[in-house]
Design a protein around this nucleic acid. Structure first.
Lengths: 264, 264
DNA sequence: AAAGGTTGTTCGAAGCGCTCGAACGACACT
DNA sequence: AGTGTCGTTCGAGCGCTTCGAACAACCTTT
């Protein structure tokens, strides 16, 4: 999996989390299922599950094991500790209400995007996004606006680690094309997503930056192509997003030193 | 901590999660801080953090480490997989809107309560509850209505494991008193919380049960004592809750075999 | 009702790999 | 330059994880 080992990882911990992830993917599983899936001894899996269950990381229901809600506890706690979340979630709700469409707030972590908070407007678009979801930054508007406001070397490192996987015909998969797109995004102040992540879905995104212009996160509005045409994306929606971002940035600057938390 | 060891837990995994929990409590910490806090060698903590960071469970920002949003990913996924969440969240929102107060949906896991989903009404009560929060079932209305619809042996086992910790003067701390209260709750169909978890806060809760009458979860409405007096709790609010529960239970029965998931 | 298939669970031993402390390197502040 | 930090690397020792086999509990099958 990894080319080399700068520091040897703790293998036991890796298998523990592998169990958790498999459990999440399967929704529920028995000891034997997990053992065969992960190619481990039943007894090993059993011991791990006992350990995880004791602390609520895993719950058992008869023979079936499931991921415990303690992950939700820790997950929500970290989200709430994130200033981007605190300063954007109300604004995201406003955007959803004003536009009637889906609005999201997204941050970067380890070179990937994480959906922090989303709110649906009156016209429910059945998107498959959910809070906590891990995405590739080059595949959507919010992600591209984050990349557009990061140093080029950082973007290059992200491409190196994660690549530019394709998800629809429209996904940008060429690094040069991406850098061109980021340049355009910087000039416009907003990023567009024209069916690059989901066929039939367009979106506009704008980055939230600190005083130095470094992107801390982004917000976006998405809607079916029928309701969100390029001309509207460039005018009304773009303007609304930029206004909102300005408001958020001002609020964050005022709080300033209060909550020290540069957040990569 | 534990009286005896039925099966020896995997110590390495325990320390890994201890690191995560300490990190959550401190919001952020350095290697040395964690090492001294947990009484481990710096190198050990470092190796663990490297392992956890590689998978996104932990994020580093220079010298500071923080819990990663991957916990949110897994946490939200398990919440969404939970039928109680799927069938109650819209109804909880309705309740919040109708009453103008705070409404919650809660489930039991490992003998403790977990706040699954909450929605505020128009009158914002600054409660300290958040989704994912771990609570004691005997300390609030929703929890008591769950206990009231579980076999007595199960309640006894929960008391044995978790005790009946006091949080306010009004908290029930005597097992006999609790069983009496649960009996009353069963007769009424709803449970009351009169400043038993937070001074100045009252609440009413009702259990969601399966066909056999076994509690799967509960919903509750809470408000400051000034706005939620006993007489109202027993009439309007109680009725509203019971109606809502009936609606939820019918919806769940119809879906029936669709999503097999007894969910303790 | 007994037999054969599941399953989860316990046990002991073998040896992997986790933990530790000390040494190293990088950085900031004096 | 010097002296505190800090994070990081390295090499052993032995703790503890892993495994497989045996056990027990439970269905299904005959």
């Amino acid at each position: 999996m990894d080319h080399d080992a700068p520091t040897r990882p703790v293998k036991t911990v890796q298998t523990a989390f592998e169990i958790v992830l498999t459990l999440r993917d399967l929704t529920e599983a028995t000891v034997t299922e997990l053992a065969s899936e992960l190619d481990l001894a039943k007894s090993t899996v059993h011991r791990h599950l006992m350990t995880l269950t004791e602390q609520g990381w895993v719950v058992r229901d008869g023979a079936q094991y499931r991921v415990g809600l303690r992950f939700l506890d820790v997950g929500i706690a970290t989200r709430n500790a994130n200033p981007i979340y605190r300063y954007t979630c109300d604004r995201v709700a406003d955007l959803a209400e004003k536009t009637g469409e889906k609005a999201w707030c997204i941050v970067e972590q380890n070179g990937r995007g994480v959906h922090l908070y989303g709110e649906s407007g009156t016209s429910p678009v059945q998107t498959y996004a959910r809070p906590g979801q891990l995405t590739y930054l080059h595949q959507h508007a919010a992600g591209k606006s984050i990349l557009a406001n990061r140093p080029r070397e950082e973007v290059e490192r992200i491409i190196e680690v994660h690549g530019l996987p394709e998800i629809t015909d429209q996904t940008i998969t060429d690094p040069d094309e991406l850098f061109e797109e980021l340049e355009k995004t910087r000039r416009r102040g907003v990023a567009f997503n024209e069916e690059e992540s989901v066929v039939g879905l367009n979106a506009v995104g704008a980055a939230i930056t600190d005083q130095s212009g470094y992107a801390l996160g982004a917000i976006s509005i998405s809607a079916p192509v029928a309701r969100l045409q390029p001309e509207e994306m460039e005018s009304d929606i773009a303007e609304l997003l930029i206004e909102t971002v300005n408001e958020i940035e001002i609020n964050m600057e005022y709080a300033g030193g209060q909550d020290e938390y540069p957040l990569e």
